[in-house]
Computed example of a mutant assay.
Amino acid sequence: MSRNGYFKKLPQSSNLLQLKQLKHQWEKIEIVPTYENIHLEANILSVNQSSQIHIPLNGLNFSEDTEYYLYFHNMIYLEENLYQDLDIEGKRMRLRPLGSYSGQKNTYMVKIPITPELAEKGYIAICFPEEGTYSLGEIELRALNISSYPEHYQKRMESTLQDLTIKGNEITGNLQTATDKLLFMSIPYSTGWRCYLNGNEAPVLNANMGFCAVEIPAGEYSVVWKYTTPGLKSGFILSFISCSFFIILLLKEK
């Protein structure tokens, strides 16, 4: 429990449980991709505009309760150009060379809508609009069962901010929950955000790869989110000192 007596640490397993449940919903489908007009050697692909990779769909039972994704492991564009696009059934997947930006993971996932035309064709076509060289570890076809999503949605809606107000750099609302939960906010994460529950500051968490969340113990709360640009106060102080020093020098010269 923290010094203000309001907040206790939620069980660590509470955040991991949802992740484990999601992993159990994924199903990796065994596939054997075929390569057309591609020179493949030691996971290095040399391609041109006529090159294609085909992902077979034969034998799959398509339903509204299942979504399909292509997952690319360790795919790296090896040329010197700024980027390269792949065409996946009309969708563009943009690749950048290794080391072209910080935090590069080289793993990609693309949702593939299974249309009647695609199901009849029987394979997903990955096309290369330009010549190039790629490193590719593996391509997976994954199926995600979404039949439980409506139930999860209803549960999420049981604990939402009520009387929501957004004004300037402040978001306010009221929340009531019978159990310990995470309050997720679809606002970009920044160290400039502060969250107050009944006037007491709660740690802001980085959730879902770049959004804000806060741990909410069971109870009733007045929730206030406030944003202050990081470094704004320090920048103002430094600017004030610099201007003052400059004015003193001018007066001294006169």
Rank of each mutant, 00 (worst) to 15 (best):
Y35E: 02
A119I: 07
K167V: 09
T107Y: 14
Q162C: 10
T34K: 12
T177M: 08
I55R: 09
N15V: 15
V47T: 10
L144N: 06
H54W: 04
G5S: 09
S234G: 00
M109D: 04
C243Q: 07
V214T: 12
Y153D: 06
Y69I: 06
D163C: 05
S2K: 10
F72M: 01
E253M: 13
N145P: 05
H39C: 11
E130P: 02
H73D: 13
C127V: 05
I241N: 04
I29C: 05
H73P: 00
M75K: 09
T228Q: 14
L82R: 15
G132N: 03
S14C: 08
N4T: 15
M109T: 14
I237K: 01
M209E: 11
N48C: 07
Q25K: 14
I31N: 04
S222F: 08
P56N: 04
I216C: 07
A213L: 01
P217F: 12
L45Q: 07
F128A: 02
F236G: 01
N43A: 10
Q52S: 15
L183F: 05
L251K: 06
E140K: 11
T115E: 10
P203N: 14
L175W: 04
A42I: 03
E151Q: 11
L95K: 05
E120M: 11
L164V: 12
R96M: 05
R142Y: 03
S135R: 15
E131L: 01
F246Q: 11
L249Y: 04
L57P: 10
T179K: 14
Y83N: 15
L78G: 05
A213F: 00
I53A: 01
M157L: 11
T34Y: 00
Y6E: 12
K167L: 07
I53D: 01
V214Y: 00
F72A: 07
Y69D: 02
Q52Y: 03
E89L: 02
K155C: 08
P56I: 03
G90K: 10
E64C: 01
S186V: 13
L182P: 01
N58M: 08
E64L: 11
M109I: 12
F245M: 13
E253Q: 10
S148K: 10
R3T: 15
N169Q: 13
I53Y: 05
I124P: 00
S234N: 03
Y196D: 04
I124K: 04
Q49N: 14
S222H: 14
E151G: 02
L57G: 09
F7P: 01
A125N: 13
K91L: 12
L144K: 08
K254D: 13
S102P: 05
